[in-house]
């Protein structure tokens, strides 16, 4: 009884405000024909008819998501591999750190014009934009994580002659994983932004392109629906990340809770 009640309460809390907001939106747009703020029902219609239409899905949405997925996977791989190498080599770290800090400070989006110039406008360029903008948080956090490995753990591994690939797999990477995951979180949100931006420049297809196209054609409900879709993708990516993070770092969260108690 009480568990049913408790779960009902939490559903109420979770759904209450969103429902109220949508209702308020619906009420505010009822009867009026405001061009910029269409009624939620019209946005929903547009969402189904344009964005979920097979043509849009295969031409715009899926290729965009594919580039995003490949881009961030490449960024994470490059970031972790290079970061591990740099983090474990003090002189290399000292050599590269100022330059890396500088690259990280460059707003990722200004790489779009640079790469457009260097690579021309095509999918390679768009992928390069995603990778070159989102690699930095993973790279720098991995360096920091590897460098910050507890010296007692390092001594333990050395004294038991755990080294080479085994040490990377079971000691170095797990020790750095809390930092790496924090970098991955940033990498995902930067990657998503860059996916959209790279398509807003001189493209002929893609999620970002379509949204801008709808805006220029004054197809406002369709544009809103596109924003909604991007929002949903953002939320989905965050949710998947959270799931993975909970799994990968379960030991970390567990030990933190014990330490805090």
């Amino acid at each position: 009884m009480s568990t049913v009640r408790r779960s009902l309460t939490s559903v109420g809390y979770a759904a209450g405000l969103p429902v109220l907001l949508v209702l308020a939106w619906a009420l505010a747009t009822r009867g009026t024909a405001n061009l910029y703020y269409p009624a939620p029902s019209r946005v929903l219609d547009a969402f189904v008819s344009t964005w979920l239409a097979p043509a849009t899905l295969t031409r715009d949405v899926l290729p965009s998501l594919g580039r995003f997925g490949i881009g961030v996977l490449l960024a994470i791989t490059i970031g972790v591999v290079a970061g591990t190498a740099i983090g474990a080599t003090p002189w290399l770290r000292a050599l590269l750190e100022p330059m890396l800090e500088f690259f990280r400070a460059i707003p990722p989006v200004v790489l779009v014009p640079v790469l457009m110039l260097l690579l021309g406008i095509d999918d390679t360029m768009r992928l390069a934009v995603i990778v070159s903008g989102s690699v930095w948080p993973v790279l720098l956090n991995t360096i920091e994580g590897v460098r910050g490995t507890d010296p007692v753990l390092t001594d333990t591994s050395r004294s038991y002659r755990v080294r080479g690939a085994l040490a990377y797999r079971y000691v170095v990477l797990p020790a750095a994983s809390p930092q790496i995951m924090a970098g991955v979180r940033l990498c995902l949100s930067i990657g998503l932004i860059l996916m959209v931006i790279s398509e807003m420049f001189a493209a002929s297809a893609g999620l970002g392109y379509q949204i801008v196209y709808f805006q220029r054609q004054y197809m406002i409900p369709e544009m809103w629906a596109g924003i909604l879709l991007l929002g949903l993708i953002g939320v989905a990516v965050a949710a998947v990340f959270q799931l993975v993070e909970r799994r990968v770092l379960h030991w970390y969260h567990g030990s933190r809770e014990v330490a805090r108690a």
């Binding site: 801008v212 991007l230 965050a238």
Partner: peptide
């Protein structure tokens, strides 16, 4: 408690998604 779900939804929306809206 009441705002948590809404915040969790709004926060990950990539800011650039609202560029067209802002321009409009």
């Amino acid at each position: 408690r009441a705002t948590r779900s809404t915040v969790e939804f709004l926060r990950p929306i990539p800011s650039v998604a609202i560029i067209p809206l802002a321009v409009l």
